[in-house]
Design a protein around this nucleic acid. Structure first.
Lengths: 205, 205, 205, 205
DNA sequence: GATGAATGAGTCTTCATTCAT
DNA sequence: CATGAATGAAGACTCATTCAT
């Protein structure tokens, strides 16, 4: 197997296990067993266990960013109505989470209670998500489509919390149950909830 | 020292440490050192490390429930306007989190990646919070003050996510920084965000 | 409660527990719980855990010796036939074991794998039993009722082993099952087995 | 070192220590020190301390059975006289014990006062030995060479007890003292003791 | 590159014993 | 004498990481 493929295969196995059992309860032996390689081989591709985990998280964040940008290219950013854009963004993020419930589980529930270093990686990831939302809101306020009364920090945290928890609920916890919901429905529901309070009313009407 | 006091003292020390370092990186030795007791003493009061952690979480949930009920007694539940009640509930919960940022940190960030048993305790705690919110919303819809269009599961998760994340942001992460905010302001901000979309408009006006 | 009674009560509880669970798996807490006394109290009556165990074993051996001597007083040691005497002794010992199956269990199965000191106590106890048998045989050979061909060490060990194991089998293992046997039957069976080889034939016929 | 060799080496060291100090007083550190390996290495080959001990006992029993069967192949089972066969079997077992006095010591004296599981292993081992003897006697009775008056359970326990104790006495306790005896002499002595009572007289004469 | 045996620091947990009240 | 909270030495077991082959 080529080096790059082996690395990918290890990451795929690690993702499954970290998602199922969390960081601490996933042993190096679990990963190498699942990947059908020898104990020592994993250290040819990763510095240590933390390195495997961080590589996974970083890949996730890069991927998410990329998806957001690609999807925006399909939109007419001038003509679009504010709540349509809100809905589009929510939906894109939810689709991303929903496509990989293992990654979703790791980011939303796992990987905490780690060493200080790792802890910071996880924290900054959630913070990054919130920062991006924050910038969107700031922009919205500058161009008078988002109510300027709202505190931008507060609202970005509200949205981040709502999106992350909703993703966890529908894509991990209730996945494949009768309670599950389509991404469309979730995005529409979130939009319906937030739009009236978020956007300058005239623009909506 | 009397037995009950010692137990309380151990719990207080454990809370501080679990909050600072997470479950896995808090050693029994850390706890007994901070509590200034001998290694074995902690095992007179708790079956094992898990037992300490679970006792902490259970105490938290009971406490939260109790605070909610007590605060409701000060309200005229008949006369109060829906968004005032919403604001009151948000504020009470935020006050509770804000009063004990260590517990807040444990519940919102820590205690994951644990054994299956423990994992379930933590999960069910967050689920409990969401279930209580869910019931409030259901009630609100029945008495026509909350928009029946909203899916009750979705909205309760949105609110739980928003509240938990906001609490974490302001009470743990930004605590004592220039970004920090009063509970009043946060509650008002959350209400302002949700009220327009949540409540039947005539009732608000 | 008077001091002597308390000591007796502790010993009785300890005996039950040592018999049930063996030395290592019997905790001081088990004993004090069963005796309904405080943890520290046991140390008023015994130097330590070993002291409790040794007191028990020593009491047993004194008791056994006493019973043998007392029973012999009821016999006409001159007139008795050799196999009757053999039968009498076997029976007395078996009766003694059978009367206190807890003690029997401790002596025959438990209390090994201990500290060096304790180990020696247990060893010397079994050795004492064998030594006593040895002396009887030596005497029997001197007065020409026991076949002088037999090696006295060997035969005494054979008898000790046979008796100890038979006791364990019938009084501990098969106690209260359909396999159980009366002391009389066991004694008769052992006699029937040993008499022909042990005794000078003319005396038996 | 190859895996199988290492396992064997650990077992050899463990046997020496369990025999010298008993189960409870043999620490994992003692074993790894003697085997000149690291603390963790032993856990690559055995689940835990119990596993080492049980492996040892099981190996012993398999070995003993094998030796008995192999030795029987050298006999003319039709022509042999009953007391010769008795003598042969006693001798084979004694030789086996005598060849490995450490194992002998473990089986006859140690490994008691353990957890319930282990206790049962040890018990069933002694029971197995007795059961095998029992079957031989039953057979002897069926073909009219062993006195049918004897209770088969009783006699098998007598023999097991006599053999186990004699082995312990000569191969552990008095090993290398002036009291020690050759295997031949012990076997002859036991035969002389049991033959007259055990076998139908005509067959002997 | 791949292997897997070996390592040993790090942790939890137990339990006999002490001692202030 | 009795109590029971406190002690801490001791021991089993884990698991990320290394390294000779």
């Amino acid at each position: 197997m080529k080096a790059e493929d082996r690395k990918t295969s290890i990451l795929r196995c690690a993702k499954t296990l970290f998602s199922e059992k969390g960081y601490h309860n996933t042993q190096i032996s679990d990963i190498v067993n699942l990947a059908k390689i020898a104990r020592g081989t994993i250290y040819q591709y990763f510095k240590n266990k933390d390195d495997v985990f961080i590589t996974l998280l970083e890949g996730f964040f890069k991927q998410w960013n990329k998806v957001l940008i690609e999807r925006d290219d399909t939109l007419d950013l001038i003509a679009i109505k504010p709540d349509d854009f809100f809905h589009h963004r929510i939906k894109t993020t939810l689709e991303f989470f929903s496509a990989d419930h293992e990654l979703c589980n790791i980011v939303l529930r796992m990987g905490v209670g780690l060493h200080e270093d790792l802890e910071n990686v996880v924290k900054s990831l959630e913070t990054d998500i919130q920062k991006i939302i924050r910038n969107e809101i700031l922009l919205g306020q500058k161009i008078f489509i988002i109510n300027a009364e709202h505190d931008v920090d507060l609202v970005s945290n509200i949205l981040a919390g709502a999106i992350l928890r909703t993703s966890y609920y529908y894509f991990v916890q209730e996945r494949n149950t009768e309670n599950s919901k389509s991404v469309d429905d979730i995005a529409a529901g979130i939009t319906r909830m937030f739009a009236p309070g978020l956007f300058i009313s005239e623009k909506i009407l």
